[in-house]
Amino acid sequence: MSLYFALKIIHILSGAVLFGTGAGIAFFMLRAHATRDARTVAEVGRIVVLADFVFTASAVVVQPISGLGLIHLQGWSLTSPWLLAAYGLYVFVGVCWLPVVWIQYRMMKLAEQAAGQGAALPPAYHRLFRWWFALGWPAFAGVLAIYWLMVAKPEF
Protein backbone atom coordinates (compact mmCIF):
# COMPACT_ATOMS: atom_id res chain seq x y z
CA MET A 1 0.00 0.00 0.00
CA SER A 2 1.41 3.38 -0.97
CA LEU A 3 1.71 6.28 1.44
CA TYR A 4 -0.69 8.26 -0.75
CA PHE A 5 -3.34 5.53 -0.58
CA ALA A 6 -2.93 5.14 3.19
CA LEU A 7 -3.22 8.90 3.76
CA LYS A 8 -6.23 9.12 1.48
CA ILE A 9 -8.03 6.34 3.37
CA ILE A 10 -7.16 7.97 6.70
CA HIS A 11 -8.35 11.37 5.44
CA ILE A 12 -11.62 10.01 4.08
CA LEU A 13 -12.34 7.94 7.20
CA SER A 14 -11.53 10.80 9.58
CA GLY A 15 -13.77 13.07 7.50
CA ALA A 16 -16.54 10.50 7.76
CA VAL A 17 -16.01 10.25 11.53
CA LEU A 18 -16.09 14.04 11.83
CA PHE A 19 -19.28 14.36 9.82
CA GLY A 20 -20.96 11.21 11.12
CA THR A 21 -20.24 11.85 14.78
CA GLY A 22 -21.45 15.44 14.42
CA ALA A 23 -24.67 14.34 12.77
CA GLY A 24 -25.17 11.54 15.30
CA ILE A 25 -24.54 13.82 18.26
CA ALA A 26 -26.99 16.37 16.89
CA PHE A 27 -29.64 13.68 16.36
CA PHE A 28 -29.32 12.22 19.86
CA MET A 29 -29.19 15.61 21.57
CA LEU A 30 -32.29 16.76 19.68
CA ARG A 31 -34.15 13.56 20.56
CA ALA A 32 -33.17 13.84 24.23
CA HIS A 33 -34.15 17.52 24.31
CA ALA A 34 -37.53 16.70 22.77
CA THR A 35 -38.38 14.51 25.78
CA ARG A 36 -38.05 17.54 28.11
CA ASP A 37 -36.92 15.01 30.71
CA ALA A 38 -33.88 16.20 32.69
CA ARG A 39 -32.71 12.65 33.43
CA THR A 40 -32.81 11.66 29.76
CA VAL A 41 -30.99 14.83 28.71
CA ALA A 42 -28.34 14.23 31.39
CA GLU A 43 -27.76 10.60 30.37
CA VAL A 44 -27.63 11.34 26.66
CA GLY A 45 -25.52 14.43 27.36
CA ARG A 46 -22.85 12.33 29.09
CA ILE A 47 -22.62 10.06 26.04
CA VAL A 48 -22.58 12.99 23.62
CA VAL A 49 -19.83 14.84 25.50
CA LEU A 50 -17.72 11.68 25.61
CA ALA A 51 -18.29 10.98 21.90
CA ASP A 52 -17.29 14.52 21.00
CA PHE A 53 -14.02 14.22 22.89
CA VAL A 54 -13.16 10.70 21.71
CA PHE A 55 -14.29 10.77 18.09
CA THR A 56 -14.77 14.35 16.94
CA ALA A 57 -11.66 15.72 18.62
CA SER A 58 -9.53 12.87 17.21
CA ALA A 59 -10.84 13.48 13.71
CA VAL A 60 -10.25 17.23 14.08
CA VAL A 61 -6.56 16.48 14.69
CA VAL A 62 -6.20 13.80 11.98
CA GLN A 63 -7.91 15.82 9.22
CA PRO A 64 -5.31 18.57 8.77
CA ILE A 65 -2.37 16.20 9.23
CA SER A 66 -3.60 13.74 6.62
CA GLY A 67 -4.76 16.60 4.39
CA LEU A 68 -1.36 18.30 4.42
CA GLY A 69 0.27 14.98 3.59
CA LEU A 70 -2.08 14.50 0.63
CA ILE A 71 -1.48 18.07 -0.57
CA HIS A 72 2.27 17.47 -0.51
CA LEU A 73 2.10 14.05 -2.21
CA GLN A 74 -0.19 15.35 -4.95
CA GLY A 75 1.93 18.43 -5.57
CA TRP A 76 -0.80 20.96 -4.84
CA SER A 77 0.24 24.43 -3.78
CA LEU A 78 -0.73 25.17 -0.20
CA THR A 79 -2.23 28.41 -1.52
CA SER A 80 -4.46 26.88 -4.19
CA PRO A 81 -7.77 28.80 -4.05
CA TRP A 82 -9.86 25.72 -3.25
CA LEU A 83 -7.48 24.82 -0.42
CA LEU A 84 -7.59 28.36 0.99
CA ALA A 85 -11.38 28.12 0.96
CA ALA A 86 -11.21 24.72 2.71
CA TYR A 87 -8.82 26.08 5.38
CA GLY A 88 -11.12 29.03 6.00
CA LEU A 89 -14.15 26.80 6.29
CA TYR A 90 -12.28 24.41 8.61
CA VAL A 91 -11.45 27.30 10.94
CA PHE A 92 -15.04 28.56 10.69
CA VAL A 93 -16.40 25.10 11.59
CA GLY A 94 -13.96 24.97 14.51
CA VAL A 95 -15.09 28.38 15.74
CA CYS A 96 -18.65 27.02 15.77
CA TRP A 97 -17.71 23.62 17.24
CA LEU A 98 -15.55 24.74 20.18
CA PRO A 99 -18.36 26.64 21.91
CA VAL A 100 -20.72 23.75 21.14
CA VAL A 101 -18.48 21.38 23.12
CA TRP A 102 -18.62 23.70 26.13
CA ILE A 103 -22.38 24.26 25.64
CA GLN A 104 -23.07 20.51 25.53
CA TYR A 105 -21.10 20.05 28.74
CA ARG A 106 -23.01 22.88 30.48
CA MET A 107 -26.35 21.53 29.22
CA MET A 108 -25.45 18.11 30.60
CA LYS A 109 -24.49 19.58 33.99
CA LEU A 110 -27.69 21.65 34.20
CA ALA A 111 -29.73 18.56 33.30
CA GLU A 112 -27.90 16.50 35.94
CA GLN A 113 -28.66 19.13 38.59
CA ALA A 114 -32.31 19.30 37.57
CA ALA A 115 -32.62 15.51 37.52
CA GLY A 116 -31.01 15.28 40.96
CA GLN A 117 -33.58 17.73 42.31
CA GLY A 118 -36.49 16.16 40.42
CA ALA A 119 -36.97 19.50 38.68
CA ALA A 120 -37.63 20.57 35.12
CA LEU A 121 -34.84 21.72 32.85
CA PRO A 122 -34.02 25.30 33.88
CA PRO A 123 -34.25 28.40 31.65
CA ALA A 124 -30.43 28.50 31.43
CA TYR A 125 -30.50 25.05 29.80
CA HIS A 126 -33.00 26.24 27.19
CA ARG A 127 -30.91 29.34 26.41
CA LEU A 128 -27.86 27.15 25.91
CA PHE A 129 -29.85 24.76 23.75
CA ARG A 130 -30.82 27.63 21.42
CA TRP A 131 -27.14 28.60 21.07
CA TRP A 132 -26.17 24.95 20.52
CA PHE A 133 -28.81 24.61 17.81
CA ALA A 134 -27.89 27.92 16.15
CA LEU A 135 -24.17 27.10 16.02
CA GLY A 136 -24.77 23.60 14.70
CA TRP A 137 -26.31 24.65 11.39
CA PRO A 138 -23.44 26.76 10.04
CA ALA A 139 -20.93 24.14 11.21
CA PHE A 140 -22.88 21.40 9.42
CA ALA A 141 -23.08 23.51 6.24
CA GLY A 142 -19.36 24.27 6.50
CA VAL A 143 -18.45 20.58 6.67
CA LEU A 144 -20.61 19.88 3.61
CA ALA A 145 -18.89 22.73 1.76
CA ILE A 146 -15.46 21.31 2.66
CA TYR A 147 -16.52 17.92 1.27
CA TRP A 148 -17.58 19.62 -1.95
CA LEU A 149 -14.24 21.44 -2.18
CA MET A 150 -12.29 18.22 -1.63
CA VAL A 151 -14.20 16.40 -4.34
CA ALA A 152 -14.63 19.20 -6.90
CA LYS A 153 -11.32 21.03 -6.37
CA PRO A 154 -12.70 24.05 -8.23
CA GLU A 155 -10.26 26.43 -9.88
CA PHE A 156 -12.32 29.54 -9.01
Rank of each mutant, 00 (worst) to 15 (best):
S2Y: 06
A6D: 14
L7E: 07
L7W: 03
I10F: 11
H11E: 07
I12Q: 13
L13D: 04
L13V: 15
S14I: 11
A16S: 09
A16M: 08
V17A: 02
V17G: 02
F19R: 14
G20Y: 08
T21N: 12
A23M: 06
G24S: 11
A26D: 15
F27T: 10
R31H: 04
A34S: 13
A34M: 07
T35N: 13
R36M: 07
D37P: 15
D37F: 10
E43K: 12
V44R: 08
V44K: 05
G45Y: 10
F53C: 02
F55P: 01
A57H: 04
A59Q: 03
V60L: 15
V62G: 00
V62M: 00
I65M: 13
G67C: 01
G67Q: 04
G69Q: 01
L73P: 06
L73H: 04
Q74H: 08
Q74V: 00
G75M: 00
W76E: 00
S77P: 02
T79D: 13
W82E: 03
L84T: 05
A85I: 03
A85F: 02
Y87T: 00
V93Y: 00
W97Q: 07
L98Y: 09
L98R: 11
V100S: 07
V100N: 07
V100F: 00
V101N: 01
V101R: 01
V101A: 13
Q104C: 15
Y105Q: 05
Y105D: 11
Y105K: 10
M108S: 09
K109S: 06
A111Q: 02
E112P: 14
E112F: 15
Q113G: 07
A114C: 06
A115R: 05
G118W: 05
A119T: 08
A120Q: 08
A120T: 12
P122A: 10
P122D: 08
A124S: 10
H126W: 06
L128R: 12
F129C: 11
W132S: 09
W132G: 12
L135V: 10
L135E: 12
G136F: 03
W137G: 00
G142Y: 01
V143A: 04
V143T: 10
L144C: 07
I146L: 14
Y147Q: 04
W148E: 00
K153P: 05
K153R: 11
K153D: 04
F156E: 12
F156Q: 06
